[in-house]
Structure formats: structure tokens, C-alpha cells
């Protein structure tokens, strides 16, 4: 490409490493409650008594009202795509994620695209980032109706939701 290129000569440089990113992640305590709900195919949201918003997964404090979200509301596992993106067709060895190859792992077939989307579940006021499964990339659009693809053996883990797929009835 006709970009103007400029490189500066390298002066003494030494490579090194420290365990900079190593840490213990502390999840929101409400995530346990949400995961328990998944075991029964329930999507639990937190209800704000100030503005009436329902946030999924639940959070402790409303981001706009700044009050505790003490209410609970189970929302539908059907919803609407509010945003999505499409990856280029995946080629083995070309795209890596944290050193992992989606084609090699069998997450996507060679030549197919990944289509992650934001889904607003009916009854909720928040986007949920999930893969859109069983759909051709060209048929996905904002406003498309989708439902959760549940894992066969529910374990009470976030992975119980495999993604969403178009409602075709």
C-alpha cells in the first residue's frame, strides 16, 4: 500500500518478561445466582426499582439510578438481535485467538464465518453477547428474532447457553 514508511534504527534493546497479567478474577456475587438459574433454563435479571430496567445477567447497582437492584425478574429465552458482526471465512492457521485456532478446535468449519451478536432478550433492557448459530451470515440482520440454544446437559454454568439461533416458525 502506498503508505509513507519510516523506520528508525534500533538502539540497545533487551527482551524480558514478567507475570504481569496473572491474577485472581473476582466475579460479581450475583453471577452465582444467574448460573444456578441456567440449570433450569431460566435467565435471571436484576430489576431496578428506580427506572424499571431489567439487566441480564443481574448486577448489584443500577448504572444510571445508582441504587441497589433488589428486584429479580426471569426474562424470556427468546429475543431480538440488536447488533452483530461477521468474521471473514475462517481458514486453518490464519486466525488465532489467545493462541487457539477456531478451525482446529472444531468451533467453526473451514471456510465458514463466525457471527457473534448482541441479543436483547424479551423482557430485558440489556444486550447479551452470544454467537448466532445455525444461520447463514447473509440472512442475519438487526431485528432478527432468535432463541437460546441450550446445552444438552445443563450444568449451571455460563456455557449452558451455547448461543442463539433464528426462530423459524
Amino acid at each position: 500500500m502506498p503508505y509513507i514508511k519510516e523506520e528508525r534504527p534500533e538502539t540497545l534493546s533487551v527482551e524480558g518478561e514478567w507475570a504481569y497479567g496473572a491474577h485472581v478474577y473476582k466475579a460479581n456475587t450475583l453471577l452465582d445466582e444467574f448460573c444456578e438459574g441456567l440449570r433450569e433454563k431460566k435467565l435471571i435479571g436484576a430489576l431496578c426499582m428506580g427506572c424499571g430496567k431489567v439487566i441480564v445477567p443481574p448486577r448489584a447497582i443500577c448504572g444510571r439510578c445508582h441504587i441497589r437492584m433488589e428486584g429479580r425478574q426471569v426474562v424470556s429465552d427468546r429475543g431480538t438481535v440488536v447488533s452483530y458482526i461477521v468474521s471473514p471465512p475462517m481458514v486453518k492457521g490464519k486466525y488465532k485467538m489467545l493462541g487457539m485456532d477456531p478451525v482446529e478446535l472444531g468451533i467453526v468449519k473451514e471456510g465458514e464465518s463466525l457471527v457473534p451478536g448482541h441479543v436483547r432478550f424479551d423482557g430485558s433492557d440489556s444486550p447479551y453477547n452470544l454467537p448466532i448459530l445455525n444461520a447463514r451470515p447473509e440472512e442475519v440482520r438487526v431485528g432478527m428474532r432468535v432463541k437460546v440454544v441450550w446445552k444438552e446437559d445443563l450444568e449451571g454454568k455460563l456455557s449452558d447457553i451455547e448461543g442463539v439461533e433464528p426462530i423459524r416458525d
Partner: peptide, 18 residues
Amino acid sequence: LFRCGMGLKGFIATSGVG
């Protein structure tokens, strides 16, 4: 969330793009 049990499949399928 991947560490909290989101699963490899879901993680790559949502975060591997973009």
C-alpha cells in the same frame, strides 16, 4: 467470563472476531 465457565466454544465464537 470464559474463566467463570463460559466455555471455550462460546468464548472463541464471540471474542475471536473483531
